[in-house]
Nucleic acid binder design. Structure first.
Lengths: 177, 177
DNA sequence: TCGAGATAGTTTAGGTTTAAAGTATCTGCT
DNA sequence: AGCAGATACTTTAAACCTAAACTATCTCGA
């Protein structure tokens, strides 16, 4: 993720104190700035955490983030997931999934099981070794996340989860058109 | 960014209703789960928006997100930024900045101006063409963000900005150790 | 049955990104 | 002055990722 970071120490856009009632254009601009600010701040937090997790995964377990993520998906679906499912869930292209799966398969952490009903499709599953490796990593990973987010209280976190759910719901709704 | 998506339609971990007072381990686990949920939700929203913006930038302007981001940085610093500054601000490695800058320079959107004081360093600046191109794109971009975030009210956005600031501050604090 | 279109996955070409090693320049200490 | 280490940037190799083209299989209507 390549953000343009949002910097705290920044001159705010000049507010027009002389206009008690803002016209449409001003309100629009104001909303735009607020949205942009929110986006940049969210992006910057996300990238920070992501970079931290990436480097810890590498240092502690010699694994990359996308591989870990793919295993995390599979861990929740013991019956396996098809390539297309993985692509949708991880929000990356199918070609990308092919590559990551290739790697993990080579390391014997996952297997491609042909779908007996559909000659085109596979189910990707964790191997026993994959499940074992993931369990170890996931426990550590969860602790890291908790550590990185400890700046927020439990109530703050709940609130943020709520707000993000709203955001997500709206994002889902708007691209169904 | 390659997340493992957080799915709404998901069986929640079973809560232990029989334990009115939670012991330390339970509270810890609970916090861990909450943090993880928050993280996955934030990541998923971020990736969604990022993918959307990426594809719109490509469709409308034939530009990639990292190039746009680099230009956005420069636009705020007319005197130019050094490679290392760009790297820090965009939270990516130096080698990455080299590549993006090479591309933009080839397209005549930025220039590398040697630093007269330091033979190793450059200032990267937008060219006139770069400034012009960026202005057009930035206006559109800001509108897209506002559109994508319109699921939240102004108050919601303010609140979220506040929470993210807290998060960011804590992230900054914790890696200064 | 058969063939048109849809679907599942892979491949390809090119850009992005990282970590690590490499080059050139600068700074400060002696 | 001169050298050791730090700094600014680039290069390299490998992984990641995308969009688009491709292959193989399936579905369904005529």
């Amino acid at each position: 993720m390549p953000p343009f970071s949002d910097n705290e120490n920044e001159q705010n856009p000049v507010e027009d104190e002389d206009a008690p009632v803002l016209d449409l254009a001003s309100r629009l601009t104001q909303d735009h700035h607020q949205s942009l600010k929110l986006w940049l701040r969210m992006l910057s937090c996300t990238v920070r955490i992501e970079n931290e997790i990436r480097s810890r995964l590498r240092a502690s377990f010699g694994i990359t983030l996308p591989r870990f993520d793919l295993m995390a998906q599979l861990e929740r679906y013991p019956q396996g997931l098809r390539m297309g499912e993985l692509s949708k869930r991880m929000m990356v292209t199918g070609g990308n999934i092919t590559g990551i799966t290739d790697q993990l398969e080579q390391e014997k952490l996952v297997v491609r099981v042909p779908d007996p009903k559909d000659g085109r499709a596979y189910s990707v599953k964790l191997t026993a070794a994959g499940r074992k490796a993931f369990a170890t990593m996931a426990a550590e990973h969860e602790g890291w996340i908790a550590e990185l987010l400890q700046g927020l209280s439990g109530a703050d976190k709940s609130q943020m989860i709520e707000l993000l759910s709203q955001m997500k719901q709206h994002l889902n709704a708007s691209d169904e058109k």
